[in-house]
């Protein structure tokens, strides 16, 4: 079995299984925890207004703007670039379509009436390049900023690596740079599999927990009467 066959077959199967099991383990584990009873009387009656924090936390408060603008902007840039490449590049969409078909027996078109849109390769390539540049920028920032460096651990660096690797290898495969296409494609798939395997166990898990965390924090703040 060559590298590509492994990456497309057993590698992908194991990565998928670990990803699914790991993510559910963590989500279910958190969801079933017993909440601490809060015995104090709520300061504010409105219970659900705290959920506004999900949106409010999407940009910094005015006071912090100067200090965090760079991180915020770069963060958005690389996330958007990453998501555009992930969800609008045809081969990726075909992969998800295959998964949806296999798991739920449905196609996007069958449910929504229109096909999931895809973007030309050039645009995907550009989005990926921007994403890579932003990722490198935030890494440099993390390394030169003494506070950030102090609070960074292995998880931060490794999560960064498994995020940039699929984009970089994907770009290399698209433009056939450095090695035969099959090798590059295999490396791309393997890097994605690494991402999937690491995902549930590191900070990448934030993709699934971030909004729930913001919401529950907001509700807690609300109850305590804090200004959001």
């Amino acid at each position: 079995m060559d590298l590509l066959a492994f990456a497309r077959g057993p590698g992908m199967q194991w990565a998928t299984a670990i990803f699914v099991a790991g993510v559910l383990w963590r989500l279910v584990g958190v969801a079933l925890l017993r909440r601490k009873p809060d015995l104090s009387a709520p300061r504010v009656a409105a219970k659900w207004k705290g959920l506004r924090l999900i949106v409010l936390r999407s940009w910094p408060r005015k006071e912090f703007l100067g200090g965090t603008a760079f991180t915020e902007v770069m963060g958005y840039v690389f996330h958007i670039g990453f998501l555009v490449a992930l969800f609008f590049y045809l081969p990726h969409v075909l992969f998800f379509a295959d998964v949806a078909q296999g798991l739920l027996g449905v196609t996007f078109k069958g449910v929504f009436g229109v096909a999931w849109p895809t973007l030309p390769g050039g645009i995907i390539y550009f989005a990926s390049a921007v994403s890579v540049a932003a990722l490198i920028a935030v890494l440099v920032h993390r390394l030169v900023n003494p506070v950030k460096r102090l609070i960074s651990n292995f998880d931060d660096y490794f999560s960064w690596f498994v995020t940039i690797a699929p984009i970089a290898t994907g770009m290399a495969a698209y433009s056939h740079i450095g090695a035969p296409y099959q090798t590059l494609l295999a490396l791309h798939l393997l890097s994605v599999e690494l991402l999937m395997v690491w995902f549930p166990f590191g900070k990448l898990m934030h993709a699934f927990t971030i909004f729930a965390a913001r919401g529950s924090t907001g509700m807690l703040f609300e109850r305590k009467g804090a200004t959001l």
Binding site: R8, G9, A17, A21, H92, L94
Partner: peptide, 14 residues
Amino acid sequence: AAADWGSAKTVGAA
């Protein structure tokens, strides 16, 4: 692009 990610069964088991 449709790699061999397994089947509904294997993913269900996971």
